[in-house]
Nucleic acid binder design. Sequence first.
DNA 1: GTCTATAGCGGGATAGAC
DNA 2: GTCTATCCCGCTATAGAC
Lengths: 188, 188
Amino acid sequence: MSTENPTRRLLIETTAKLLQNQGYNATGLNQITQLSGAPKGSLYYHFPDGKEQLACEAVSHTKKVTLAGLRDALDASPDAVVAVQGLFTFIADNYDQDADLGVPIGIVAHETARSNENIRQACCGVYHAWIGEFEKKFKSCGYEAEEAADLAVVINGMVEGAIIMCLTQKSSVPLRTTAKLIPRLFKR
Amino acid sequence: MSTENPTRRLLIETTAKLLQNQGYNATGLNQITQLSGAPKGSLYYHFPDGKEQLACEAVSHTKKVTLAGLRDALDASPDAVVAVQGLFTFIADNYDQDADLGVPIGIVAHETARSNENIRQACCGVYHAWIGEFEKKFKSCGYEAEEAADLAVVINGMVEGAIIMCLTQKSSVPLRTTAKLIPRLFKR
DNA sequence: GTCTATAGCGGGATAGAC
DNA sequence: GTCTATCCCGCTATAGAC
């Protein structure tokens, strides 16, 4: 559990990065071992269920990392609108700095939603956590429970939707346009 | 061009369906010929550049089909808010009727944005067309040019974002929640 | 226009030595 | 824990008959 074997950890982190950039189907076990520099023979020792298990743990790892980042972004302002706008511009700035930066789980979620139940559930857990984080923030800003929950789902979708447009158009503009209209959603 | 060879057309339509359900990497040429029932030897005759060309034409085909559907949905009401809400519930109802219904291009767009320039451009054309359709509608409803353009991008993202959450959660709720909050975006 | 056969490669996974 | 060798499969693409 928390006793982390370094090789095991390395494999998970490398897989997480590859999944974010290429998705599940395009990522091979050979590529993972080569890029990681991990002992090639150790993969099936650490992950007896092979690629699927590795992917599930990589998605869970991504969840941990991104959740911390999301929390920080939302804590940056006491105002919900400002905080959410800050998140969008943060992602947009990251994209402009390095267009090859990974999309946390969008590709994998899309690919596996219908074809791999275990990975689907792992991705579902990530969205659940993100949405929960938004919801908590909005409640703490004084929004009613139901409204906070609805806003959380919609905002999370706007992030994912803006990102897929940015990738396809090779531009951070959709993220910035979305940020611009965010205040409207919060008007009562 | 418009002289449509039936075999060629069959291959494109079958590929379009498979790309919508499985994405690019998970779809094999064997699967396409088998499912289509098309003459197996004819694939490289009609598509000398192979899988990539076939995928590009399939995405373009999907663009034509979906654009007509989007136009109909938006024409269903003279009010922009009602029309957009109707679109979301239309997609949600479709999902509830047949959860295996394809996502027009989300999976392919995600997969290929960074790895295949030709397919990326084809997907880009689809988003461009959809956004243009939204924009036209909003302008005709009296919104200023810039506002209509911004709304169009954001709404398009909300569709894509809601869909990926629905797939991952196996539920049409995110689409319906998004529909519920749509009126807020259009308040001035 | 369509068919069959096959080349050539890379994938995931397993066995067994060390 | 790690390594190597290997199996088997499916993939894209091509060649050449019909």
